[in-house]
Simulated assay, not measured.
Amino acid sequence: MTIHIAAAPGDIAPTVLMPGDPMRAKWVAETFLDNPRCVNDVRGMLGYTGTWHGNPVTIHGSGMGMPSLSIYANELIRDYGARTLIRIGSCGAMQPHVNLRDVILAMTASSISTPSSTLLREVNFAPCADWGLLQAAANAAQAHGTTPHIGGIWSTDTFYDDRTDLTDQLTRHGTLAVEMETAELYTLAARHQARALSVLTVSDHLQTGAALPSDQRATGFVAMVEIALAATFPD
C-alpha cells in the first residue's frame, strides 16, 4: 500500500495500461480483461487487475496532467514493480492529415516543463518511447487493419491554452497531436529503466474544431486498447 494506491503486494501486474479517466479504466478492464477485480479506489482513482489471453494486466487511471500521472507512475514502478506502462488516452490532432478516431503512436513528447524538470535543470531532456514497444505497436496496428500515425506529440501543462503562437510553431514542426501526460511518463520510464509507450486516439482537431461526442469517446477507443495489449504481448 502507498499513499495513493491501496493495492496489496502482488495486486499490480508488471504491465499497466494507464488511461487518464478512472471510469475509462473501469470500462477497459471490464471490456478487455478476464476476471477483472478492483485493486484500488483511493480518491476515486480506480485500478483493476485481470488477465488478457492469460497474461496478467493492470488497468489504472492516471488522472489529468503530468503531476497526477507522475504520482501514480512513480508508485506503480517504485512500490509495485510495474515494468511496462502504456498510456491509452485521447489527444487533439494538430496536422491536417490526422483525422478523428485515428490512432497515434507517440515516438517522442515535447513539453515546456514536466514534474521532472527540476531534476534535469537546464538540460532539455528528450523523452521518447521504448523502441520495442513502439515497433510492436506499429505491427499490431497493421495486423488490426489500422495504419497509425507515428511521430512526435506535444504534452502541455494546460488544457485551456491561449498560446496560439506556440501551437502554430509546433504544428509547423510536424507535431502530430497534443495531450497532457506522455512527456512525464517517458521521463519516469527512462529514470527507472522501465518501458513506456503512449497509444492515443484522436478525439478532437485543433485546426478544424471537429470533436467526437462524449458518448463516442470510450466506444471509439477499442482499436487503441487492442493495439496496446497486442504490443505488450505479441504472439
Rank of each mutant, 00 (worst) to 15 (best):
Y48S: 00
G132A: 14
D79H: 14
N139H: 14
S111A: 14
A177F: 04
A106V: 09
S62C: 12
A196K: 07
R195W: 09
L105Q: 10
I12P: 08
H60C: 02
V123H: 15
L85P: 14
H53Y: 04
T175I: 13
L134N: 02
G89P: 08
P56V: 04
G47R: 03
G209K: 05
V178P: 12
T187K: 00
C38E: 14
L188N: 07
P14H: 03
S203E: 11
G145E: 06
M66E: 02
P234F: 04
L76W: 06
T114I: 05
M66I: 00
F159V: 13
V16F: 05
G20T: 06
L119V: 11
A141D: 10
D34H: 10
R37A: 05
A230S: 11
Q142D: 13
A228T: 05
L69A: 15
Q95V: 07
L85K: 02
M23F: 15
G132K: 15
D161N: 13
G63E: 04
M107Y: 13
P22Q: 05
A194K: 00
F221Q: 14
T156M: 10
H53W: 07
L33K: 07
A218R: 15
T158Y: 11
T182I: 08
D11S: 09
D168L: 10
D102H: 05
P127Q: 05
L105F: 07
D157M: 11
G54M: 01
A82D: 09
G65D: 08
L166N: 12
I71F: 06
W27P: 11
